[in-house]
Design a binder for these strands. Structure first.
Length: 580
RNA sequence: GGGCUCGUAGUAUAGUCCGGAUAGUACUUGGGCCUCCGGAGCCUAGGACCCGGGUUCAAAUCCCGGCGAGCCCGCCA
């Protein structure tokens, strides 16, 4: 498709751009260090505003060799030998630092590489099956703004891991054996189910009413206990009722998730592990441990030696299992299906998940990798489905979509209503997802309506707009007969062009870091920086109106930007519009 | 009371794990920029590492002690 001789001559068998640059720098520096007679396994390489990669190795060796950092760096620097045509253009000494810079070859190959790989640019070569569990909200009401932090983190991580090369399966674990579902079942028999409402919201209404009544009229509590017990032993009639209630609620939840561009591959009911006998098997194995003791009829696991003061109860005195016991079975089952397990959990699960990991470890089973996110609270305090104190995801998206529509209506008054609605839709979903994902999971947040519907801050619409603008330039170029089928990347010399290419090249290492550290916000920040770099290029460097020798190369760069912006947005689960 | 997490400009945050050069960004605030490819844009100015010790050539980053916020500490999930 690309008829460019340059492509044919250089684009065979090279692997990842920035990662390869890093490798080359590492080997150049190691060689120089060895030649200088020093020894270290820490090259002290880091990205820096002063260079593409900078080493402060002089400092590291100073005390060991009793020389000044600068003297050491000078010796190493004198022994650096660069190869022609590599990704490393030159090394410079600035004070005691040794700075490395990418070469023209690196920049040129980045551009050509993106044009060849297109939507696959940024995909890495990891392998293995990953089961990623996220959301797993109890089916007793709609997803609220706390749950969707879990969903968005989970879905984005799944997308990142897929790009990193893993075979990812997402699972939603349905806690169908908890008391709250029994309350819903009891509630459905005693309260009106509002069929005019979205199903998960109608379930919440029943659940809230049922809870209120159960608090006010204590005599009904045994009725719920009876329902729970029947479900535990597998009473067919009760099972049907549970299934009906849960399916009803899940239908609404799935609708909300789909709306946010989130999909689960599997829905796993916790009761299956009780029914299959796996829970009993694992209880027996845990009971057989030296550390498990019978206390007042219940079995407790002592975990003090692994730093957990709180003992874990794995079987009640009435012989039934608990949430964690079933979770133990779930995780052992997952182990047989994959190479890595990742769970996304709220901060309230910190203790329980460390207990879970500890017991799995003691049993000789694989432990899950756990991503904990801190709570989203309301200005007036924490949310609770049971008390009816929460802002639902649907409500949030509705409001954001309305606000988005107003903005679109103002900016594009001449467009037809259908178009405006469509734009409002993907802008709002993007804004909601971006606002959640840009913040590190370990940061607790307080929800603020004013912030949530504010489109002035530089979030998803900014990135989507950059993408749309790139599309527009490409379209205009096509109309004017400008193409990039044959171009010379060597003419891309402006600082904005070079900055943009470097940013584009960084996508692979961004995916690499984000997947390694399970930090989805790295990708969010990157996408914004990429849009930033593109906007600066756009502002200062004319494309279509440029001289012919620059035109095609710049257009190729616009196409590269478009591709990587789209890939980054896709990784964030955000739609990349061609116009907005 | 014990445990875990967090504390960066007026606000929201990146950087902290693995210590290095001028602490990056957005909103807000003050100046500018359309004869030119989409102004949801660009340029520019101002402003911050909770406090106190310690380690180090070097601390936002590591250690200790405070203070403040959130979460957990149930035979709930």
């Amino acid at each position: 498709m690309l008829r460019n001789n340059y492509v044919l001559s250089c684009c065979v068998n090279f692997d990842f751009m920035f990662l390869k640059f890093k490798d080359e720098v590492s080997s150049i520096l190691s060689d120089a260090i060895a030649k200088s007679g020093f020894e270290t396994d820490d090259l002290a390489l880091a990205e820096s505003p002063h260079a593409d990669l900078a080493s402060s190795v002089g400092f590291k060796l100073a005390s060991k060799y009793k020389q000044s950092p600068k003297a050491i760096s000078e010796k190493i620097y004198a022994n650096i030998s660069l190869q022609a045509d590599s990704y490393v253009a030159n090394a410079q000494m600035t004070g005691p630092y040794i700075n490395f810079f990418t070469s023209r070859t690196f920049l040129n190959e980045t551009v050509l590489r993106v044009l060849l790989d297109r939507e696959n640019f940024g995909n890495l070569g990891n392998y293995g099956k990953v089961i990623l569990e996220h959301t797993s909200a109890n089916p007793d009401g709609p997803l609220h703004i706390g749950h969707i932090r879990n969903s968005v983190i989970g879905d984005t991580l799944a997308r990142i891991l897929k790009r990193a090369g893993y075979d990812v399966e997402t699972q939603y674990y349905i806690n169908d054996m908890g008391r709250q579902i029994a309350v819903v079942v009891w509630g459905l028999e005693n309260f009106k189910f509002d069929t005019t409402k979205k199903k998960d919201h109608a379930i919440a209404e029943v659940y809230i009413n049922a809870n209120k009544t159960l608090v006010d009229e204590k005599e009904h509590s045994p009725e719920v206990d009876a329902i729970m017990k029947k479900y535990e032993i597998g009473d067919p009639e009760i099972e049907g009722k549970f299934k009906g209630a849960i399916d009803t609620c899940m239908e609404g939840i799935k609708e909300s998730l789909t709306r946010m561009n989130i999909h689960h591959d599997k829905f796993i009911w916790e009761s299956r592990f009780v029914r299959s006998g796996e829970v009993n098997l694992i209880m027996d194995r845990v009971k057989a441990l030296d550390r498990t003791e019978l206390k007042d009829g219940a079995f407790m696991v002592d975990l003090k030696d692994v730093g957990i003061q709180k003992s874990l109860v794995i079987q009640r005195s009435d012989g039934t299992s608990l949430y964690t016991t079933r979770d133990l079975s779930y995780h052992e089952w997952k182990t047989t299906q994959c190479d890595r397990m990742i769970d996304i959990l709220g901060a309230d699960h910190k203790l329980i998940s460390s207990q879970l990991k500890a017991v799995l470890h003691i049993l000789g089973s694989k432990e899950p990798e756990i991503v904990i996110f801190e709570f989203v609270s309301l200005p007036e305090g924490s949310m609770s489905t049971r008390r009816g104190v929460f802002i639902s995801a649907d409500e949030l998206i509705d409001e954001v979509e309305k606000a988005a529509y107003d903005v679109v209506d103002k900016k594009l008054p001449d467009k037809d209503d259908e178009f405006k609605k469509m734009v409002a839709k993907f802008v709002s979903i993007g804004a909601v997802r971006y606002d959640i994902i840009r913040i590190s999971p370990e940061k607790a947040t307080t929800f603020d309506w004013k912030e949530a519907v504010d489109f002035e801050k530089q979030g998803a619409p900014f990135i989507q707009y950059a993408h749309a603008r790139a599309c527009s330039i490409i379209k205009n170029a096509k109309d004017e007969g400008v193409s990039f089928e044959d171009f010379d990347p060597n003419v891309l010399l402006e600082s904005q062009e070079i900055g943009l290419i470097k940013k584009i090249a960084a996508f692979e290492s961004v995916i690499d870091n984000a997947s390694r550290e399970l930090k989805p916000n790295i990708v969010a920040i990157y996408a914004r920086e990429l849009a930033d770099a593109f906007n600066q290029f756009y502002r200062f460097v004319p494309v279509i109106t440029a001289e012919p020798e620059f035109r095609s190369a710049r257009l190729a760069l616009v196409e590269c930007s478009r591709i990587v912006l789209a890939n980054a947005l896709d990784t964030l689960g955000i739609f990349a519009p061609e116009s907005m």
